[in-house]
Design a protein around this nucleic acid. Structure first.
Lengths: 150, 150
DNA sequence: AATCAATGGTTACAATTGTAACTTAATTCA
DNA sequence: TGAATTAAGTTACAATTGTAACCATTGATT
């Protein structure tokens, strides 16, 4: 016999809390790169993944950032059109395409890294060291739920 | 002089971690009510807010769940068309409209509450009590950031 | 009272998104 | 070999979304 009640306290419901938080924080951060670089969220995410990890395929970007493959496909097209990344076919498996930031892409990337670090510093600067550590532990716990595996 | 590095570790970047988590958890949960009740995310959120808090205006739903007002407007219209909620104009200020679940709406609501609680129980069942407490503390910390105030 | 600004809520339109179908290429296995 | 699956990535189309403009009403200022 599971205990349940007839109302759901949203303030205690994990999916609600997470999406409320994530939407307000991500939106806030998105304003920066949207205004300054005219980038969309999927574009920023793809750029950030390539900047950090070097050469990746679209599929790898999907897996790493949990984005739908059509989103990634479009973001990659757009970055490629602006000349921020270079596509190179794999010769042994001609379905896959390796993606890599171009020189321009790298310059944009480092600007955006600065912006991101500044943003995060501002967030963290209002938190005590122990609060930061608690948040970190919690995120690790959530990231290791079965749900988020494989 | 702020210390920065030339790459951003996404696994340490708060907006990234939160949205990756939130998207995968919310999506997983959305599958349930989408499949069983044909509801969208904004509809579920509006329903859940009304079920928990009783009578609300659209604006209050926006504030509570951090949704865009057009999203709320459409969700409310849709719930109203299905007869799950009742709209009542305020007589002293005829711009505002009070929203309240109907009898049918309440029945759907309690079904969904059960679903939600089961979902959350499954999530929590894989976590130790101290892990749960860490997650709770962390979410409270994040929810109280300036960003999420007012 | 008359104008002007602000608020609750809706809607038109354009942009973004997801679903499903598709193309091309590789793999399996009969 | 060759038919049947599977994978990477794109695209057409429909659904969802956000932006901005819009009503209707109220509140503030004169």
């Amino acid at each position: 016999m599971k205990k349940t009640s007839d109302t759901l306290i949203l303030e205690e419901f994990l999916p609600f809390r997470l999406s409320r938080l994530s939407e307000s924080i991500s939106l806030k951060f998105a304003q920066h790169y949207k205004r300054e670089y005219g980038m969309t969220r999927p574009e920023w995410r793809a750029l950030a993944a390539l900047g950090q990890l070097g050469t990746l395929t679209s599929t790898q970007i999907c897996q790493h950032s949990n984005m739908h493959k059509t989103k990634v496909s479009r973001a990659v097209q757009s970055l490629s059109k602006r000349g921020w990344l270079i596509r190179k076919r794999d010769d042994s498996d001609r379905r896959v395409e390796y993606l890599q930031l171009s020189a321009i892409g790298l310059r944009r990337y480092s600007k955006l890294v600065e912006l991101a670090q500044q943003f995060q510093n501002e967030l963290l600067s209002t938190m005590s060291p122990s609060a930061i550590s608690t948040v970190n532990k919690a995120l690790l716990i959530l990231e290791n739920l079965e749900l988020n595996k494989d």
